[in-house]
């Protein structure tokens, strides 16, 4: 029996961590006598942003983390961020196989699976969003909280006045009016209690979560074929199961928020299309720029986008 040690980027109580722990349970059940995963903890065991390096260096065998936490080493993660597909389609069309290949080449890690996909981001606001004459979102005068994932979009397209605040300070920031709007995934606002201050959700949602399981390549290669098969099969199964589970959770969250008075403001027509296009293209732009700087170059840029983005779906 072989054992892999694992850590997860987020605290144990967060929904995404729960999803990873379910995956671990499934592996440990299917892999009895063959392969087991031993979870060592979350950010209290290895710092959130140090986990990608830790798995690269073999300190720990497996990490569940957003690709954005190692975007410096692997700018291609932005293909997932700007994706409008879920892992199910990206697995089928070979997108995840390509991302895995890039992970192996650039970081020496195996990309085992893209979990909790299909969840996207909304802009959440305290006051009713203003729309200009053409129906575009007008964020002038709004204090928008940003971070590394969405700053390219917020500042370059929306021209927003972005304030970088750590997640732990956002509650106090909203309470005192230091910020009055923030991006966040469709799920999880209630857990953070930010809905006490936020009253509007702006649609359409944009981006996608980019949470994945990466495994130290040396460790992966040392596993028996049977162990590899179990891990990979369970991961593919969980890619699918997690999409479905989180869809249900999203609908529940939205319903609960709306029952609590959250109002939805939806951009229409061209304004909507421009908003979505900007979110995507500003992110792609960043990815292409960083890919070009790296020794592997940006040769796979178009292929990646073709595999993770389907223009038909946005029509």
């Amino acid at each position: 029996q072989e054992t892999l040690t694992a850590v997860h980027a987020f605290p144990g109580t967060l929904i995404y961590t729960q999803s990873f722990l379910q995956f671990v349970d499934k592996v440990n059940k299917a892999g009895e006598g063959v392969v087991q995963i031993e979870v060592r903890g979350g950010p209290e065991a290895i710092g959130m942003f140090q986990q990608p390096d830790a798995v690269r260096d073999g300190i720990v065998d497996m990490v569940y983390t957003p690709g954005s936490f190692y975007g410096g080493a692997l700018p291609e993660k932005d293909a997932l961020v700007a994706s409008n597909l879920t892992a199910v389609e990206a697995r089928e069309n070979g997108g995840i196989a390509l991302i895995d290949e890039i992970h192996q080449a650039k970081m020496g890690v195996k990309y085992l699976g893209w979990f909790d996909s299909g969840v996207s981001y909304n802009l959440w606001m305290k006051d009713e969003p203003k729309l200009d004459a053409n129906g575009n979102l007008d964020v002038s005068g709004i204090k928008l909280r940003g971070n590394a994932v969405y700053n390219a979009f917020f500042t370059e397209y929306l021209g927003a006045q972005v304030i970088d605040l750590p997640t732990t300070e956002v509650y106090a920031g909203l309470e005192r009016g230091v910020v009055d709007a923030t991006g966040w995934t469709q799920i999880g606002l209630i857990d953070l209690k930010w809905n006490e201050f936020l009253n509007y959700r702006v649609e359409p949602s944009f981006f996608s979560t980019d949470l994945g399981v990466i495994v130290n390549l040396e460790k992966w290669n040392s596993l028996s074929d049977e162990a590899k098969t179990i891990l990979q099969d369970v991961a593919i199964e969980h890619e699918k199961a997690s999409v479905e589970a989180l869809r249900v959770k999203r609908d529940e969250d939205f319903a609960a928020l709306e029952a609590g008075g959250m109002k939805v403001v939806e951009l229409q027509g061209e304004a909507r299309a421009n908003y979505l296009a900007a979110a995507r293209e500003k992110t792609w732009g960043r990815m292409k720029g960083l890919m070009a700087e790296s020794p592997m170059g940006d040769g796979q840029y178009d292929t990646l986008i073709g595999l993770f983005y389907n223009a038909e779906l946005d029509k």
Binding site: F69, G71, G72, A73, G146, N147, A148, S294
Partner: peptide, 9 residues
Amino acid sequence: NDYDVRAYY
């Protein structure tokens, strides 16, 4: 060629 990823790389 490692980067520290925050507001900037």
